[in-house]
Design a protein around this nucleic acid. Structure first.
Lengths: 164, 164
DNA sequence: ATCGTTGCAAAGCATTTGCATGCCT
DNA sequence: AGGCATGCAAATGCTTTGCAACGAT
């Protein structure tokens, strides 16, 4: 029980970090654990959300450090971020090709790479299988020479619950 | 030459404004002209961009007023805004069902309603015909009950020029 | 021991708000 | 005339930065 697969994802992230010649610090470790936990509960945390949780885990870590850490982890490729509809940016562990996770709906796919749509009414973020955008991506490439980065930004709309 | 259809679009916007029982003030008029001009040159202006141009047109108008004006014009429905990939929000005249404009590429469509994709390398914003997202919209609705608001948020990718 | 990383605190920026005045209708 | 919109200025909130101290390797 107490040795959940979480460690696997975090460890993998740590390995990536080290492979990139980066140092592992308490701040970085805390950020990785927080993001991993959020990932596996399908939460989407912003920089400040992460800062808040890191503060609980490592009170000594300064907010500014969380921002710098997020930036460097994204640069390293350990984390990736998604720009949501409004303005917020949320973070994910980028590595890890999915493994467990009991899915609930069709277009939903376990972790790993995925696209996002956000409800502008309630703010909820839904994960979507990247293939849903394959046709659009193909058309944009053919017509405009534009290579779509599926999942780097979320589209807006209204979720089922908010359709009155 | 000098009596461009601009006035038509602005006038239409003004009518909408009045129909909504809102007042026409120098600040609002300036904002409308600026946004109209941007629209017809396919530019995508943020609140501060608009503020800067309004300052040239009406030096007396305060920045705070531009923000308040944009908000109220969007509420009224005269303007609509699009959330770009990064964080910025850009504005469009919402009415006006397109008219002139010599198009250059297939998926490009004159003004009116359209979707957007943004290059995260150069920041350029490309307008895309909303139909490009029809299939995605249909699938999201069918699978998740999510109603996509095409064109309220932009997707990210890399434009032809930036593909090295 | 070295050099990247952190803490701290202050600066930055875009955006918002309270309030009294002004002006559109 | 009446009430919404504006100017002004201060406050906000998130994020960034300079610099010296710290600590991971």
């Amino acid at each position: 029980m107490t040795n959940p697969p979480e460690s696997a994802r975090v460890e993998q992230a740590v390995d990536l970090l080290r492979a990139a010649g980066e140092r592992l610090t308490p701040a970085r470790y805390a950020v990785l654990r927080v993001v991993d936990a959020a990932d596996r509960s399908d939460e989407h945390l912003t920089a400040e959300d992460i800062g808040a949780r890191v503060a609980e885990l490592e009170p000594a870590v300064h907010r500014a450090t969380v921002y710098r850490t997020l930036t460097s982890l994204v640069d390293t490729g350990v984390l990736s971020h998604v720009h949501l509809g409004g303005a917020a940016t949320v973070y994910h562990l980028s590595a890890v090709p999915a493994q467990h996770h009991a899915d609930h709906d069709t277009v939903h796919q376990p972790h790993g790479h995925h696209a996002h749509v956000q409800c502008h009414a309630c703010g909820k973020v839904l994960d979507v299988a990247p293939e849903v955008f394959d046709d659009v991506a193909e058309r944009l490439r053919a017509d405009l020479g534009f290579v779509l980065d599926t999942g780097h930004a979320a589209l807006l709309g209204t979720c089922q619950d908010c359709l009155t």
